[in-house]
Write a protein that binds this DNA or RNA. Structure first.
Length: 557
RNA sequence: GGACCCGUAGCCUAGCAUGGAUAAGGCGGCAGCCUCCUAAGCUGCAGAUCGCGGGUUCAAAUCCCGCCGGGUCCGCCA
């Protein structure tokens, strides 16, 4: 709805979009008068005079969603009309689960997580998963046909080492109920420790990589066993976090299906390949210091060769391709993009996120220095359970609520921070629910549910929104609710999912504000029905918002 | 050495893309609010040289340059 209002304002002004912005002083504000006043300096008119003149020439009557417009301090402040407020509430209640949906169309591939299958996900990996999954949910809401991929790096040196580790140390004690990804990590960490004193292991790993790339049967089976074990545990963790991938795409498939050969041939035909033992791509024309090696002297390919092949495939199947990557891949991402351009392929859009580090320094799977996502989930769950231990819920309900609150807290804590900001993980903060978190939003939603439930129980479920009795607080809330699809659209464009987290929190805060001094069920009927409509619309919007954040909208907590 | 990202109250963050009207939340601190729709809530107070220095502009947290601090990258690793 807000999108329509904005469209009307821009159209009325027939100005560039950038001069119309959200403001504390109005629903939308026009800032163009400053510029115009400056451009016509010789006329010696203040921005305020210019704003007034522009305003007097606007034919606002034809725009049903513009309620008022006023020139103040050089700005033109626009506020929405009664009709806008009424249509917003009607639309929300009418569309319900569909509220906020757009019909942007198109196909998009979102690749995220893609952690090496050499151990469990740690708290750095899930920053990736949560950003990727939230983007996927928001893209789907925008009406884009989304496919999500986990790109499995089964051909890397790490995996070869993990295989070696499993050969030597086995894959955990079958009787112990250890998650398989943790078992892989154990073997991987152990072999890395051995590697420090035994250089022959290096050669052994290299031999293994050659054999795997050549596709030797028994080696392939061995790799599969290890990778699948890691993936099994990883998938379980992701499920806990409400993250799901449509497909797991194994890197090796691009060797097996000939895409890598096709790409290498294409590179050669375009004269991009330098062969001197190893095969390299020279990008010095673009200012790169070093050549990019795509094939080793021993004939095996490097990660980037398979990745170019993967992106060739992405180009063939999707209009838009988005990768979520750690910022350590920035140079790599640029190289990949530039090589793809040389092949007349469209580079992926990449969302880079900065590292999650521990107070004592950065994490490392290899050295066993990390906090696993499983451990985080478990501890946050226990903390959440502690809070509701004494409540009048059944044991089953308590567990469900604790899980929803824990997962929500984790997802929200990660998604609310802009991807480009480095994070330092802090247990105290992660376990603290007395702060702005998902539970605050879930709580606001549960409150709205509770009011609606009680209204039905009391036999007065009728809703009748009346814009004319809307006070400032209510108006503010309704306008905020109207922005849902506007925010969705922004995120699809800007790839900044943290903005959505902020938006949903804003609704919860505004609703709590409204709640404290707007009795609903005890108000006389006209106001009761009016406020009940607002409460229900807020409930729907919060629920849909939580859904896009992958957080369960609890009805009781 | 070169490149990229970050630097906003004691702490964590929003705002920076597209400069604009009093820099916004939370935690922690202090003082309050449950005979009233869920107190996982709400109110008030204290707390900011927006890292530092220049510049552009009528206007800079936001744009440009330099510096400082933290992180990352510059592999025939992924």
């Amino acid at each position: 709805m807000f999108r329509e209002f904005r469209k009307q304002v821009i159209e009325a002004l027939s100005c560039e979009e950038r001069f119309v912005r959200e403001s504390d002083h109005a629903d939308l504000a026009y800032t163009g008068a400053f510029k115009i006043a400056k451009e016509r300096k010789e006329e010696k008119r203040s921005p305020q005079e210019v704003a007034e003149e522009i305003l007097s020439n606007l034919a606002l009557e034809i725009y049903d969603y513009i309620g008022s417009a006023e020139a103040v301090n050089g700005y033109i402040n626009f506020n929405v009309s009664y009709e806008f407020l009424e249509d917003t509430i009607d639309l929300i209640l009418d569309e319900d689960w569909n509220y906020g949906r757009l019909k942007l169309g198109g196909e998009a591939l979102i690749e995220h997580t893609s952690a090496n299958p050499d151990g469990p996900l740690h708290i750095g990996h899930i920053r990736n998963s949560i950003i990727g999954d939230t983007l996927a949910r928001i893209f789907r809401k925008a009406g884009i046909n989304v496919t999500t991929h986990y790109y499995v790096n089964d051909m890397g040196r790490q995996v070869a080492l993990a295989v070696l580790g499993v050969r030597k140390y086995g894959l955990g004690d079958e009787k112990q109920e250890e998650k398989p990804d943790h078992a892989v990590a154990k073997a991987y960490i152990a072999i890395n420790r051995d590697l420090e004193g035994d250089l022959s292991l290096d050669a052994e790993a290299e031999r293994l990589m050659v054999e795997y790339e050549e596709g030797r049967g028994e080696v392939v089976e061995e790799f599969k066993r290890v990778v699948n074990a890691a993936l099994e545990g990883i998938t379980e963790t992701l499920q806990m976090l409400n993250v799901e991938h449509d497909d797991y795409v194994w890197e090796s498939q691009f060797i097996r299906n000939g895409y890598v050969d096709k790409v290498l041939k294409e590179l050669e035909e375009k004269g991009l390949l330098v062969k001197d033992g190893a095969w390299k791509i020279d990008l010095s024309d673009l200012g790169y210091e070093k050549e990019v090696v795509v094939r080793r002297e021993n004939g095996t390919t490097l990660y980037i060769a398979r990745d170019i092949a993967y992106h060739l495939w992405k180009n063939q199947n999707f209009e838009r391709s988005i990768n979520v990557l750690g910022s350590d891949h920035k140079l790599y991402g640029r190289q990949l993009g530039d090589i793809l351009k040389k092949l007349n392929l469209k580079p992926p859009e990449i969302v880079f996120f900065e590292f999650v580090s521990l107070p004592e320094g950065s994490m490392s799977t290899r050295r066993g220095k990390f906090i696993s996502a499983d451990e985080l989930i478990q501890k946050v769950y226990e903390e959440a359970y502690e809070i509701i231990r004494e409540r009048e819920f059944s044991e089953k309900e308590k567990k469900e609520v604790a899980k929803a609150v824990a997962v929500g807290a984790i997802r929200y804590d990660f998604i609310k921070v802009a991807p480009e900001k480095p994070m330092v993980f802090d247990w105290k903060q992660a376990l603290d629910f007395e702060r702005q978190t998902a539970s605050y939003i879930q709580y606001a939603h549960a409150r709205a549910c509770s009011i609606m439930r009680k209204a039905v129980e009391a036999g007065m479920p009728d809703l009748e929104f009346n814009p004319e009795i809307c006070d400032e607080m209510e108006r503010k809330l309704v306008v905020l609710l109207s922005k849902f699809s506007y925010i969705v659209e922004r995120i699809v464009k800007e790839l900044r999912p943290n903005v959505f987290a902020d938006y949903v929190l804003d609704i919860a805060m505004t609703f709590n504000d409204f709640y404290k001094d707007h009795p609903v069920l005890k108000a006389e009927s006209e106001y009761r029905m009016h406020r009940l409509a607002i409460v229900d619309a807020t409930r729907v919007t919060l629920r849909n918002g939580l859904e896009l954040l992958g957080i369960e909208p609890l009805e009781k907590m």
